[in-house]
């Protein structure tokens, strides 16, 4: 089974994530899109690590997971607090800084 298939899958996943971020208004769904993009990148890292027979790619994938986890924690906290104060999780409604 060729490794190229993994890269194609990774590209598809990334595109789905990017379109989700661009199209959906709900902050949580957009967030999920971001996660999907991150995991697509992880898949690419791991694939290339296998192709070259090295470990760096796999290590970086772990780092990305850690960063994604922290991001989710802080991001979700912000989204929840916005939802509590404004009664909406739509990212278009967050416009207090707009003049």
């Amino acid at each position: 089974m060729s490794l190229v298939n993994y890269l194609v899958l990774s590209g598809i996943l990334f595109s789905i994530g990017a379109v989700t971020v661009l199209v959906r208004r709900n902050a949580i769904v957009a967030f999920m899109g971001v996660e999907l993009m991150l995991n697509a990148a992880n898949l690419t890292f791991v694939t290339f690590a296998r192709m070259h027979g090295e470990l760096q790619g796999q290590v970086i994938a772990f780092f990305v997971m850690v960063v994604a986890a922290t991001e989710v924690v802080i991001g979700l906290a912000i989204i929840v607090s916005i939802f509590r104060t404004r009664g909406s999780a739509s990212i278009d409604d967050v416009n207090l800084l707009k003049s």
């Binding site: 990017a18 990212i91 278009d92």
Partner: peptide
């Protein structure tokens, strides 16, 4: 515009 999505679209 102030819309995060449009900024993200521009970047993409």
């Amino acid at each position: 515009t102030g819309y995060v999505r449009s900024y993200a679209a521009t970047m993409t």
